[in-house]
Design a protein around this nucleic acid. Sequence first.
DNA 1: AAAGATTGAATGCTCAATCTTC
DNA 2: GAAGATTGAGCATTCAATCTTT
Lengths: 172, 172
Amino acid sequence: MSCPENFDPAFYASRYAWSESPDDPTGVAAKLLIRMALVYRTIERELEADIARHGLTPSEFGTLDMLYHRGPMLLGDIQRRLVVSSGGITFLVDRLAAKGLVERKACPGDRRARFAVLTPEGERFVEERFPAHGRFVTELVSGLSEEEQVELTRLIGRLGRSVKEHTAQDEG
Amino acid sequence: MSCPENFDPAFYASRYAWSESPDDPTGVAAKLLIRMALVYRTIERELEADIARHGLTPSEFGTLDMLYHRGPMLLGDIQRRLVVSSGGITFLVDRLAAKGLVERKACPGDRRARFAVLTPEGERFVEERFPAHGRFVTELVSGLSEEEQVELTRLIGRLGRSVKEHTAQDEG
DNA sequence: AAAGATTGAATGCTCAATCTTC
DNA sequence: GAAGATTGAGCATTCAATCTTT
């Protein structure tokens, strides 16, 4: 307690900590991303905690949900959607298989590829546990009116497009 | 190519993949969080890539930036701001020390505590390299007008408060 | 050669236990 | 006993290399 505290909440993001200069446009942009990082990572921690109660990682959760709603998927497809490495998706499906929730199946027509498929047990798992997570999500954002939620969704979409435009050159 | 593609971009988030039901309020909430996850994680990857060009992780970057703008900080203070574990902050400062950018210093008045301090080399590092990152950040969001950026920042702040309210009970 | 998946090493992190100091 | 920091084990992930199939 004899050492400096200078706690200045929400000034620095959880992981990205740029300085703010309230007057110039740089400040506005930085402030936006800092706050987004701060809020998003708070949400992420809450969701992860909720998912962890079912003994799953977020990637496992996402995989199960995709397989439930879309049916069998190639490992590569899951990989691209989850944005993990090719090694990562192999290990991920291994884990789900060890839990008895998912199986690999051969892909007729391309013997390099493998499908991931929900087992009956996996299907039951999703049906029993995922609805509660959905209710949790709804609660988290319920401080905003539905109109605000829609407007926020729209603006974030515009932000996403801006990001894509300004990074497209890198990958071209 | 003989296997199903069914690519349906932006339907599933990068890590959290709930189904969307466009009509009920659950759908609105889920859509918001899915899109936020998708966009935020895209941004995060871009920023990480930019930071990695300087040989830093995001946490290292954040630490250096904090130390530069705030001066010496206790490890525990950095830890709380970065939202990492106590073991994590020790390892993080170890890494920065190994790179010669940061030093530990004793805290007069509390011999349990340690300060992290920027070395002269660390100070030079920040001054030379961080401005370019700031410009990168500004560019990423430049597809939005300044008014939109301000409005988005405001709404995200409200979202953050909503999340905090609806999770405060857990910790009480 | 290129694409899909797998393996093994390395990494950044968390968690639990420990040590020192208050 | 509680707080600040450190240590070591465990873990999900990435990266690079490899194998098979196209």
